[in-house]
Amino acid sequence: MSDDFESFAKAGLPLQGVELEDGDLDVLKLLHAVLSPSIDALKAADLSSIAAELDLDPSRAPHEG
């Protein structure tokens, strides 16, 4: 898994104009290990029963109440 992520990062970041420096990948892998469980859970969650708030206005309560 870690190797997969490293390959993904090495391939994906340069496409976005990011040049990785010495040590960047090591820190990135550590941070990824902390963050990825919650991100993966969000990816996998069944959200089909939650309606989107199409007219979002964060300054007010949602219209749906």
């Binding site: 990062a9 820190v27 941070l31 969000l42 309606a51």
Partner: peptide
């Protein structure tokens, strides 16, 4: 290094996460 890594990590997240995050926000707001 940590801030740089956080930016790099965010750049690697798929855009498909955004509407999912929006659904969570809608759920929380309601």
């Amino acid at each position: 290094p940590l801030t740089r890594a956080l930016i790099h990590e965010m750049l690697l997240w798929p855009a498909t996460l955004i509407p999912r995050a929006d659904r969570i926000r809608a759920q929380l707001r309601r």
